[in-house]
Amino acid sequence: MTTGIRLIVGLGNPGREYEATRHNAGFWWVEAVAAGKSASFKPEKKFHGLAARLAVNNREVWLLKPETFMNLSGRAVSALASFYKIEPDEILVVHDELDLPPGTVRLKKGGGHGGHNGLKDIIAQLGTPDFWRLRLGIGHPGDRDAVVNFVLNAPQRAEQELIDSAVDASLAGLPQLLSGDFPAAMIKLHTKPKSEGA
């Protein structure tokens, strides 16, 4: 039986100085989910982060923003997942993706970490790469040496608008993600709205 997502983790760095940076795109997504469901994040020391609980179709779904800084994200994910007995394939990690242009969203299960320190630590802490990932495109600076500076800075206005609209549009796939209909979720997430000109 296919189970749906029970834990959605948005990746980012805590602190006001990081709020608007590209690396915090995962935070933006779970904050949008919480706002749409009138849920609020509360500090949860035992989960090393801010957590919000949703009740969806008589099921409990958790939203999590780790407060550990990016390279220790797995500590928060494994703490909440083990406490509530949530399996890796019931976890969705939402993160910024250098290999996709701004405005693009892609869903996939498993795979490597692609140099993303948050994913790297989650894979290490869970002991498997077989969790779902929602990749939010932020673009690439074109030079590997410029990546750290790039992800820790805010997007340009045009890029921010593309990312924001991708976040909003991708929320349409949330019911399918929660019900476990991942093929339908992929169709919703990967199809550009018609108004963008085919």
Rank of each mutant, 00 (worst) to 15 (best):
G36R: 14
Y18L: 11
P141D: 14
E90M: 06
R59V: 00
G26K: 04
P175T: 00
A20V: 10
A32V: 04
A172I: 02
A154W: 00
S179F: 04
M70Y: 06
G112L: 12
D121P: 11
L134Q: 11
G114W: 02
I138D: 14
S179W: 01
T191S: 13
A39C: 01
F182Y: 14
A35N: 09
P141Q: 11
L11P: 12
I5Y: 00
F69Q: 12
L174A: 07
G10M: 09
T104H: 04
V9K: 13
Y18W: 13
T21R: 05
L107V: 00
A32L: 02
L64I: 10
G74N: 01
G36L: 08
P175R: 00
S78L: 12
Q160S: 07
L7Q: 01
F41K: 00
A76Q: 14
L126R: 11
A146L: 15
I122S: 05
M1G: 15
A146E: 14
Q125T: 15
G12F: 09
T128P: 01
H190C: 09
V56K: 02
L107S: 08
L177T: 06
L119N: 04
K120V: 11
E161Q: 12
L54A: 06
T128A: 13
P129C: 09
S73A: 09
L80E: 13
A172H: 02
K45L: 01
F150I: 04
